[in-house]
Design a protein around this nucleic acid. Sequence first.
DNA 1: GCAACCTCTTGATTGTCGCTCAAGAAGTCG
DNA 2: CGACTTCTTGAGCGACAATCAAGAGGTTGC
Lengths: 178, 178
Amino acid sequence: MPSNRPDVAPEVKRQEIRSAARTVFFNDGFDKASVARIAREAGVTPNTLYWYFDSKDALFAAVVEELMGLFFLGLKSRDPAEPLEDTLRWVVQGMQAARPLIVTLHEKAKTSAPIAALHERFHAELAELLEGMLSERAMDPARIPAFIHIASFVVEGLLMHELPTAARDAVIRELAAF
Amino acid sequence: MPSNRPDVAPEVKRQEIRSAARTVFFNDGFDKASVARIAREAGVTPNTLYWYFDSKDALFAAVVEELMGLFFLGLKSRDPAEPLEDTLRWVVQGMQAARPLIVTLHEKAKTSAPIAALHERFHAELAELLEGMLSERAMDPARIPAFIHIASFVVEGLLMHELPTAARDAVIRELAAF
DNA sequence: GCAACCTCTTGATTGTCGCTCAAGAAGTCG
DNA sequence: CGACTTCTTGAGCGACAATCAAGAGGTTGC
């Protein structure tokens, strides 16, 4: 097989690079994850990586987008009638793997419009989910928007700060009891 | 005056550099704030800056430490008996100027022990303040730790996310009503 | 007065980083 | 077969944080 014409479809190659990036981002954090390292992990040179992704930020966005897709797929498959506490716990648990990326997402959102859009989408979709649940719960509609912000910030806070499991559970319980 | 012996005390020079750093960090964000830029702003060369501060991270830590000092000085001078809502509003207001640094603080805390310590100190001091207030309020002591976490995360969340003023106020009101 | 020492400043440089560009390889199509 | 397309890479660039040796000037002790 010619060295410059592998029998790998472009989208498969993209996915391989994205997967390598996710691994390196998770292990090393965004700043320490050099493009050279990611490329090596994916079995290409850095220049080839730039054929598939415009920039390191674009690669990061692709990783985040994939993770978000999986996350919301999982969240939306849960029973909408389950207790809020269970949902919140699942949300926090479901995002544990992505913890190293949460802060970076906020950092990058300040300078990259595509990432900012992803961040906003995350909040919008989470808000929509929560709103559905809270309406079912007959919470005073006037309180819902503020509560959704609070819940979202607490979720993010739990992901950005290392708490003992018991403390984390207590926060979730307290939040769900609001 | 000899060019290498300015009549400026070392601590004054440190403060000048720190002040320049704060300005550039605020305006450009940490990543875009190059050491060369900061040095220029302070009227020294980058090498001189390294005489006073070990690294860019150390400079960042010094800026954060100064800001934290000022913040808690202000917070502790408030009437402890005032309504929680007023305190929370003041906290969020008092940290507006430092907003650009909040996310970076979390990002750097992941890799720099001194900054992690600063971050922990911030939370510890805020928790102590809030605990005093909540005890006065006769909140169920079993709820206080979790509530303090919630309040802290919401404060940080408000600083990391651009909300309209009305929405922000609603969040603060809802939080204070817990 | 002089040498040793100290504080501070800077020219020069380094290695790493994200990224670009030109060139080449190989397949496809008219 | 030439033009075009897709993909890969060697070579290189500018920016960055940071280091180091050298120099300037003040201080101190003999």
